[in-house]
Amino acid sequence: MKIAVCLKQVPDTEANIKIASDQKSIDESAIKFIVNPYDEYAIEEALKLKESQGAESVIAITLGPDRAKDALRTAVAMGVDDVVLLKTSANSSDALSAAKSLAAKIKETGAEMILLGKEAIDDGSMQVGPMLSELLNIPCITVVTKLEVNGSSVKAEREIEGGVEVLQTTMPCIITCQKGLNEPRFPSIRGVMMAKKKQISEEAVELDDAKLAVSSLSYPQSRSEGKIVGEGTEAVPELIRLLREEAKVI
């Protein structure tokens, strides 16, 4: 069995995002990029499956510009066997064209288990996993918090609103990973040093013409730094209203 992990390099969660002068993209100059945290669950799960199922190898695939090689190096440091960069000239906000490039590469690798994060924290679209399912015509289970593989049979627990759904399918299949699935390992220093020297293979890809285009970016209305809603119990109804209507978190 071969396992493929699709991962994405994204700006660090703490990064200060600034809109570039073209008003359509962000200024990357002062941004530190990291492996999308949800993809780390995917890498960890792949490595665990390799250990438990005796899989042949784990390949990590990423789509992105040259800097995305760093994300692949992190994967190597964690223990992934092979990596490939599908090198794009431009950042696309269209998940479908990204999924098409990834699907072609996955097919080539012959991987039977494809793991990826449930979403990338940059655009938060949550589309690539389910789209791969259509493009490759294999089942996909999303937002998985527990995974059991037994031969070719796959059992997964998936987070749904107000509960958990237990699903079963067979390989080949796609799993998108949610936090709680595992604790991603910290890359060993030896791994990091090995990864530094690793030759990263790259293939240039041309993305489909996107049917989806960002026409402009804007900042949200600046939330004033800390709003004291009030004092004592009288302030509670207003707080609840703000949480529902302004922050929209409950």
Binding site: I17, L217, P220
Partner: peptide, 10 residues
């Protein structure tokens, strides 16, 4: 986008 740090008009 970016956990709400920026909004995109698409």
């Amino acid at each position: 986008l970016y956990a709400g740090k920026v909004f995109a008009h698409i």
